[in-house]
Every structure is written in C-alpha cells, then in structure tokens.
Amino acid sequence: MEYIDLHAHMISRTTDDYQKMALTGCLAVTEPAFWAGYDRRSADVFADYFDHITDFEPKRAAEYGIQHYAWLCLNPKEGEDRELTKQVLQIIPEFLDRPNVLGIGEIGLNRVTRNELATFRDHVELALEHNQLIHIHTPHLEDKYKGTKVIVETLAADGRIDPSRVMVDHAEEHTMPIILDAGFWTGVTLYPVTKTTPGRAVDMFERYGTERICVASACDWGPSEPVAIPHFVLEMRRRGHDEEEIRKIVLQNPATFLGQSPKFRLGHLAKPAALAAD
C-alpha cells in the first residue's frame, strides 16, 4: 500500500533503508530537524545540517522515487542553551525558501524546563512570522504527559495559532485526547520499545477514529524501524479494517496536513487537496 512517512530522520539511516521504504510503497518522507546524539557547538554546524537535509537527502531519496521534505529548528534537547538558540534562529530563515522545506520542527519540550519553553515560544514566533506549518515533538516516556499539557496549553492560549496547521506528534493513549480536544493534528510513533507498537497504534485508531491522526516510523539512530508503517498496515488488515480506512490513515491524512504547504506535492498521484476530498 502507498504511504507517507511523516517523521523520518533519514540522515541517520542507510540508503538500503530508502530502498526498503520504496519497495514497501513509501511515496514521501518528511524529516524534522533533531538531536544528533550530542550537543552541537555552533550555529555553523546547524547550517551544515540544514544544508544536508534540504539538499543531499532529497537527492538520495529521489534515487528511489521517494519525495523528501524537511522541517527546520533547534531540537528541544538543545533548547536549554538560549544563546545558541538565538544564533540558530537567525540562520533558519536563510533556508525556509528551499523547495523541500515545509515548516518549523520538530520543536517542543524535552525535560520541560523554563529555557526549553522559552526556546519553544521563540520557534513558534518564527513560524508565525514566516507563515510556516509547525511540527511538534512531545517529550519521552515519563515526561510526555506533563510536556504535552504544557505545549497544548501554551499554544491554545495564543489566539494567533491555527490548530489545523500544527502537528503535535508522538501521542500515546494518555495524551491523544488532550491534543485532539484542542483541535491539533497528532501522530502516533511506531517504535519497538519506547513509544507505540503497531497493535497499540491500531487500538488508538479504533478508539479515537481517523480524523487528524497520522502514523510514522520516526526512524533515527536509535532502535527504530524504517518500514514500521507497513507493519501497521498489516496489523490493521489482521483486525479486519478495510483498505479505504487504512489508506486514509497512511496516505490521505498526512497528505491533507502536509498539503497545507504549497511546496508539498505527491509525485504521480493527484494533488493533496484531491486526496483529501476522497
């Protein structure tokens, strides 16, 4: 089945992974800026990173017929450093006009500190200033509940925010209603250990429906699976869900959200707006 992986850190994956994704029906990936596993020491390093995910990765993906898009930011794990944040925020606009950049992300919180929240707010301002879509990371494990609440309450209090242009990602059962009730899009991350199995992901769609919810692999340099979405599709079929419903989740929903950016196109398929009207 054709699908879009809305969250994939392809910089940390091999070319073989692009091939596996293409063979299993992947049409497009979007790559949010993330933590490299260490704190970067200058804005110049971020400039190199942004250049990589807006130039080299699209070319590598294109070798396998996959469309590659990117989101730019300083990741929440580095958000404590306010001085570095200021420097990185100054260079991001230089990259926003690149053809594969869809917006600002993945911004958010990690341990939910005062500085992290200030850095998050700065990125939201940048997104509003440049009319960009926003992709949000919610914290890991024990910090997810409080971090999601703080993020949603912060955005909901800002009347300038259009929730339909914001993806609050990495939802689990205890945070999904918080996000959906506020009108945001949300995503379920298919990780083998630290987030959600395909079985739990299908449970969430059965319980909360298919509106404004996507699934993604979030594959990166940790334990993760670049072809996680096909495993989700298999579990949906095992449960007896029909093909139209599955297609809505793995293709139409991400196309509808991403299609709010005029840069997003789905290759040989119809325009995202036409997909959304299916």
């Binding site: 939910v112 500190t113 024990e142 910090d143 509940y145 703080v150």
Partner: peptide, 9 residues
C-alpha cells in the same frame, strides 16, 4: 509511569 507535576523545571 508519568510525572504528573506540570511545574517547569
């Protein structure tokens, strides 16, 4: 398993 205290660190 969650920290339910939403006070910022």
């Amino acid at each position: 398993f969650s920290d339910q205290n939403t006070d910022l660190l």
